[in-house]
Design a protein around this nucleic acid. Structure first.
Lengths: 232, 232
DNA sequence: ACTCTTTCTTTTTTCGAAAATCTGTCTATC
DNA sequence: GATAGACAGATTTTCGAAAAAAGAAAGAGT
C-alpha cells in the first residue's frame, strides 16, 4: 500500500504542511503530544520508518531521545511504546511545573533587560493574533497556537539565568502539552479568557511585579490542568 | 534511567577496558563522571568505537542519550563533546537536588512500609562496609562506593510515590556524581565523618523524623558540594 | 488436557559502508 | 596583503542489510 514515492505520512490532519522538512524527533513528539498515537501503542520500527521516511538508526535515536523526555517508554528487547497517561501524573507534572515556573519568573524579572522585554511583547502579539480569532478559526490553527503558546511562556522566563531550572521547566512544559491537548476540543468557554490571562501575565511581568505574575501564572496553569483532569 | 536491572557491579577485568559486558551507555557515563574525558573534550566516533568496541549507530545512540542527561553537549554537524563544568552549575545543581531530595524524603517517610525500611538497613550496611575501611582501601574500591552510595540514597526515597520527583531527583544526583568525583582525591578528612552522617540519616529516616532527616541530608549534600567548589 | 520442545515468523538491535557535511589549506584575483 | 573560491582530508550523519532476540505456532510426550 501507500505506493507514493515519498512521504506517505497520511496523518488524519493534513492541515499543517511544515511537517515534511522537520526532523523525525520533532514530528514524532508532535504526533504523540497530539494523540495521533494513543498511550500504550507500540511503536514498531517497520511502521515508523515508512511513516516518517527515515532509516532505522535515525528512528531509534529519536525514540531513545523521547524515552528520556518521558514520552515513550522502552523495555529492552521489546521495543518502544507510547507512555501511559493518568490523572495522577498530570497532577504531579502540574505541581512541578508551577514550582519551576514561579521560580523562573522571579529570576527572569530580576535579571531581564530591554531585549527580554521587547521579545515578550513581540511573541505575545504573535500569540494574540491567534487567540483573538473566533473559535473555529482558532481550532484550524491549533498547532500554530501550541507553538506560539510555548514561545510566549518561554519568552517570559528567557532571562532566567539558571540553565537547569530552564531545562527542568521545559521538560515539564512539554509533558503538560500532551495533557493540554485533551482540552483542545473542550467547549469554547475559556477561549477569550486565555487571551485575557496572557495579557495580564505579560503586563505584570513587564511591570516587574513578581508576586502578581506568579499568582497569575499559577492560576492560569491550574485552570487548564483541572479542566484536563475532568476530561481524562 | 538506570532501570532496576542488576548491574555486574564489580570490575572483573584488570584493565579498564576490555570485556564489553556492561553496555556502552553506562561505561561512557562512568568515564565522563570519573573525568577519564575532561570537559570540552570532543568525543569522536572513530576513537570511541574503537575504545568501546561498538558500532557507530550504537555509540551515537548512547551519546544522544547522554546529551539529554546533560553529560555531553551536541552541536548539529559538529559532533559531541563532554559538557563543561563550572562552580555556578554545581551550585545550581546542588540547590535543585536538595529541594527534590527533601521533598522526596518527606513523601517516602509518609508512605514507606516494612520492605522500604528493611531495604534501607540492607543497603546502608553494604555502604558502611566500604566506608568503614581505612583510607587506602576505600580509594581502591571507589567505583563500588559510588554505586553503593547511590543505592543508599535511592533506598531512602524509594517509597516516594511521585515518579517524576524521583526522576528529576535522579537526574540531579547523576550530575552531582560528576562533581563529587573531584573530591575523591581530596585529603582524607571527612571519610569517617561520612560513615557517621549516613548512619544518622538512616536513623532519622527510620524514626520517621522527617524534619531531622531533611536537615541532615541538606547538610550532608552541602558539605560535599562546598568541598567540591573549592577544588574546582 | 497440559507442558515442554522444536520450528518458524516477526521484531528489535547492531554494524559498517556510503552520503553529506565540515575544516583547513592552497591558489587566483583584486 | 586580503578575500573568495575550490580542493582534499577528516568527521559526522544516514541508511538498510544482517545478526540476535522475542514471540507464535505446531508437534510430541506424559
Amino acid at each position: 500500500m501507500n505506493s507514493g514515492i515519498l512521504k506517505p505520512a497520511s496523518s488524519p490532519s493534513s492541515k499543517t504542511e511544515t511537517s515534511g522538512s522537520r526532523d523525525v524527533l520533532t514530528r514524532l513528539r508532535t504526533d504523540i503530544v497530539s494523540s495521533v498515537f494513543e498511550p500504550e501503542t507500540r511503536l514498531k520500527f517497520a511502521d515508523m520508518t515508512k511513516r516518517y521516511d527515515v532509516g532505522i538508526g535515525t528512528l531509534r535515536e529519536a525514540l531513545s531521545q523521547l524515552s528520556s523526555e518521558g514520552f515513550v517508554t522502552v523495555e529492552a528487547g521489546k521495543g518502544f511504546k507510547v507512555s501511559p497517561v493518568s490523572a495522577e501524573e498530570l497532577i504531579e507534572i502540574t505541581d512541578h511545573f508551577i514550582t519551576f515556573e514561579k521560580r523562573a519568573v522571579r529570576e527572569a524579572i530580576a535579571h531581564g533587560g530591554e531585549d527580554w522585554e521587547t521579545n515578550i511583547v513581540a511573541v505575545h502579539h504573535r500569540l494574540s493574533l491567534i487567540e483573538g480569532l473566533p473559535w473555529e478559526r482558532r481550532m484550524e490553527r491549533h498547532s500554530e497556537w501550541v507553538e506560539r503558546h510555548r514561545e510566549f511562556h518561554e519568552a517570559i522566563i528567557a532571562a532566567c539565568p539558571g540553565r537547569w531550572l530552564f531545562r527542568l521547566r521545559s521538560i515539564m512544559f512539554d509533558q503538560l502539552d500532551r495533557y493540554r491537548f485533551v482540552t483542545k476540543r473542550a467547549p469554547e468557554g475559556l477561549g477569550g479568557r486565555k487571551l485575557e490571562e496572557h495579557r495580564e501575565i505579560m503586563t505584570a511581568t513587564l511591570a516587574r511585579d513578581a508576586d502578581l505574575a506568579c499568582a497569575l501564572i499559577e492560576q492560569h496553569i491550574r485552570d487548564t490542568s483541572e479542566r484536563a483532569i475532568k476530561l481524562l
